[in-house]
Each structure stands twice: as C-alpha cells, then as structure tokens.
C-alpha cells in the first residue's frame, strides 16, 4: 500500500515532466508535420540558460526569461532555417533538425564543458512539503506538478477558447483554406514553433535542476519524448497528456513490480524450464527492462492503431 501510493505519486510526477517536454513537440509535429529532432536540444538549452540566469539574478527570473529565450531561438530557427529547408520537402526538414541537435550539443560542450553544471533547486523550494509513510515529497516536486498542470490548462484554453487557437487548429487540418481566408499561415507556423520551443525551454528550466544538467541530457531525453508523441497520437494534446502519464506510470511500476513473464506464466499454470523456448528472455524481471517498455508500447501502438491513442489523422 505504502509503496503503491509513493509509486503513484512518482509516476504522476515523471509523467507530468514528460508531458511538459512532449506538449511542445506534439504541437510542432502536428501542425508543421516536422518531427523536430532538436526539440530536446531546446530543452537542454532551457536548462543551461536557467543555470546561467539563476546564478546571476535568481531562479524566478530564469523561470520567465529562459523559456522566452528558447522561444526566440525557436522563431529564428523556423524563420531562417526550417522554412528554407521546407522547400526541399520533409526529408530536408528532418535532416536539418537532426543536424541542429548535434550542433547544439557541440556548442553546449564548448561553452559549459562536458560535465554537469551545479544548477540547483532554489532554496525557497528546497524543503519537504509533506511525507508519505516517511518518504519526503519536496516542495519542488509539488511545484513541478503545479507548473505542468497550469501549462496543460493554458495550452488547452489557448487552443480551444481563443481565436488564435482556432486558426492554429484550422492550419493543422486545412492549411490551404486558412491561407485563402487571409491568414498568414507561415507566421502561424513560426508562432507555433516558437511556442513549442518555449515549452521545451520551460521543461528544461524545471527539469534541469530536478534531474541533472549535462550535455547528454538532450540525447537521453529525446527518444522517450518521441515515443510519447507517437503513442498519444498526432495533433492531440489530450492524447499527449494521457500518453505522458501512461509512460510515467509504466516506467515507475515496472521498477516496483519485481516479476518476470515467467512468473505470470507460472500463475497460469505454465512452468518455464530451461528447456522452454526463449526461457532466458522470459525470466528477465520487469525492472531490468522497465526503460524499454515505452518503446515496446510504441511499436505495439503503431501495429494496431497507427494514428495513436487520440490521433486525428494517419500521417
């Protein structure tokens, strides 16, 4: 019971952190059709910017400025890079963002060096909020939950309750119609890309000190975010939200549940002996493969429902 409650909490938190990162990507992916490989790099830059700003003027300034900087960077990338690459098709765009991810990593290595930087949780939030059966839940974790929930609400309202949101939604499904109605579709694209980049930056500000700020953080976070977006379905913020939480819970509970497929089979009355085909694989306990389960789920989803959980289109 105790472990269950703590694990639910852990899963929720990790899921929300994933959502912060994935929401920006899913916006960009669904509207522009670009799988932005550099998205996690913007997350990393958000963390490094926040580190630099917070050690000079404090964390709260960084919380505002760092995402804005990332958004600005995103706007520049879209206007001067992606738009040019777009003329040569999706492959060119893909390669462009892929190359960008490497360049950002090298730049970070050159500027901040190869090891972690001491980007820490602000002292105002560095206390224990409450304890669950003796496990402390820090105020900062509560803060992460708060920010990500607020972010979800804000994006949701923006997309469904404002004029700008309607235009964005319409650009997603009928870009030509939106353009002929006199809207500047390229500018919508720039706005969305900048917005997505700012969200990634915000996730970096929050996640950088909760986890570790180091040059490998982009490449280690990239794949799982990609999984969330594909699993949740293209163009669906709600799908992305649900997928994030599922991935958070899957990874958390995979660690806690010390069972293997062989144990499950044993309950069904099938004993796994060394002679059983794939006995080695069946005996691997869940915690050892936990981090790979999201990828397994993604492959499964692509097989049975290529559009994803709540996706609206198949491409």
């Amino acid at each position: 019971m105790e472990l269950l409650l703590v694990s639910v909490l852990n899963g929720l938190l990790y899921g929300m952190l994933l959502f912060m990162l994935a929401s920006g990507l899913t916006l960009i992916f669904s509207i522009m059709g670009v799988l932005n490989f550099a998205h996690a790099s913007l997350y990393m830059l958000g963390a490094y910017f926040a580190y630099e700003i917070s050690r000079r003027v404090g964390f709260w300034v960084a919380l505002v400025i760092a995402p804005l900087l990332c958004g600005l960077l995103g706007a520049l990338i879209e206007t001067y890079g992606l738009r040019k690459a777009h003329r040569h098709g999706h492959v060119a765009e893909l390669l462009f963002t892929f190359g960008l991810a490497f360049i950002v990593e090298k730049l970070v290595l050159m500027v901040w060096g190869p090891t972690a930087v001491p980007y820490r949780v602000p002292p105002e939030l560095d206390f224990t909020l409450f304890s669950v059966y003796g496990t402390h839940v820090s105020a900062y974790r509560g803060f992460i939950l708060l920010i990500s929930a607020a972010m979800f609400a804000a994006i949701w309202l923006l997309l469904t309750r404002t004029r700008m949101g309607f235009v964005i939604q319409a650009s997603l499904s009928h870009p030509d119609m939106v353009a002929s109605l006199g809207h500047n579709v390229p500018r919508v694209f720039t706005t969305v890309f900048a917005g997505g980049a700012a969200l990634a930056g915000l996730a970096g500000v929050i996640g950088g000190n909760y986890l570790v700020t180091e040059p490998a953080m982009a490449f280690s976070m990239g794949p799982i975010v990609f999984v969330v977006v594909v699993f949740g379905g293209l163009g669906s913020l709600a799908g992305c939200f649900i997928a994030s939480l599922i991935m958070g819970f899957v990874q958390t509970f995979a660690v806690v549940l010390d069972i293997s497929p062989a144990d499950l089979l044993a309950r069904l009355g099938v004993a796994v002996t060394p002679a059983t085909p794939l006995a080695e694989v069946l005996r691997v306990p869940l915690p050892r493969i936990g981090p790979f389960l999201p990828f397994l789920l993604m492959v499964f989803m692509l097989l049975v429902r290529p559009r994803g959980l709540l996706g609206t289109r198949d491409t």
């Binding site: 280690s220 990874q251 509970f253 660690v255 981090p291």
Partner: peptide, 21 residues
C-alpha cells in the same frame, strides 16, 4: 539486488521507493 539499464533511467524515485520499502 537489482540491475538497471545503463544510462536509460531518468527518474530514480521509484527505485528509491523500493529501496526504502
């Protein structure tokens, strides 16, 4: 007694919960 995949785990809090338990 646990083995973890190298460089794949981002959130160790579930391991911590298990260790505590």
């Amino acid at each position: 007694n646990e083995l973890i995949p190298v460089g794949k785990v981002k959130d160790f809090s579930s391991y911590i919960a298990k260790i505590k338990a």
